[in-house]
Simulated assay, not measured.
Amino acid sequence: MLRRMRRWLELLSLGGLAVVGFAVGIAEQLGLLDKVAPKGISTLTLIMVSGVVVVLLIELTPLRALEDIRARLAGLDIDTIAASQRRSHYGGVVEVHKRFPDDEFAAHIAKAKQVTILNTWIPNLQRLEKELEAAIVDRRAQVRIMLLHPNSMLVGLREAALDRSDGAGKTFVSTGIVDCLETLARLHRRLAKRQANLKVRVFNSQASVSVYRADGRYLVSMFLHGQLAIDSPQFEIEGTHDTVLGEQIQRELDMLWDIGRDVDLADWNRSIDMIRF
């Protein structure tokens, strides 16, 4: 209602000014203004200017309201508020990827001081190998790797869920774990004085999720039937101790690490054979 009234007032003001303008122009052409008192012209001019001012005031009122809103927004930290809302309403989830984003996680590794990977085995380990080596050598990052024990009974369960084999009588899962251990052993030899920064443990337990962590950023997936964890949707989560999901995932990492057994990468075959659960 107020908006409609304001609009009608604007139209009446503009219409009145237009009528006065035409009348003054016609009167001047007919010489009628010469008969008006000397102050008549200034009076007409004042009337027209006043009308213009009224119209401008009406138009500028909404603009002042917008300026007030802008001033209030300027005093707010939008990024902080958005992050707080994301933590409280979404548990720390910042994005969902269709599959594992190798390049994006490699970029996180390139800046991280702590890297943790939990998986049955790591099919994309070779794609991350150079970044892991640089993180340890250049920035002295701590890297922890957790894999399923290659002789665990759970290997068969995961094998059945994937319904795959390597065609040589060996299970697909066990072969993947062995390949990872060989890759990590080669990396371990190249680290020289930084070998202590790379720690590998195997576990004999049902992991609920696969986790790739770089500092406070996690990529979390599930062990679905018929597809690898890295080919499943990835939930990107931020916050190790200040988001619901971040805290829960970190507890899972800590629990699997505690129940795992160290692998001596200098002779991983012998080390694996000696591990008993």
Rank of each mutant, 00 (worst) to 15 (best):
R4W: 15
M5T: 12
L9I: 14
G15D: 06
G16I: 05
L17K: 04
V19I: 15
G21S: 12
A23T: 10
G25S: 12
A27D: 00
E28A: 11
D34R: 15
P38K: 07
G40R: 11
I41A: 12
T45D: 07
V54T: 08
I58S: 02
E59R: 15
R64K: 10
A65D: 13
A65F: 07
L66F: 13
E67F: 14
D68N: 13
D68Y: 12
R72V: 05
I78E: 10
D79N: 09
A82M: 14
R87V: 05
G91I: 10
G91Q: 09
G92I: 12
K98S: 10
K98A: 11
F100Q: 01
D103K: 12
E104C: 00
A107W: 10
H108N: 09
A110F: 10
A112D: 06
Q114Y: 08
T120V: 15
N124Y: 03
L125Q: 03
Q126M: 15
L128E: 03
E129T: 06
K130L: 04
A135K: 01
I136W: 02
V137E: 07
R139W: 05
R144P: 01
I145T: 08
M146A: 13
L147C: 04
H149A: 03
V155P: 01
G156N: 11
G156F: 11
D163F: 14
D166W: 03
K170F: 04
L181S: 01
T183V: 05
L184S: 02
L184K: 00
K193Q: 05
R194F: 09
N197H: 14
N197C: 07
F203W: 04
S205Q: 13
S210R: 00
R213M: 13
M222C: 07
D231Q: 11
Q234R: 03
Q234C: 02
E236H: 06
E236M: 12
G239F: 10
G239I: 09
H241D: 14
T243H: 06
L245A: 07
D254N: 09
W257P: 02
R261E: 11
D264T: 07
L265H: 04
A266C: 08
I272N: 05
M274W: 07
M274Q: 14
I275A: 05
F277M: 09
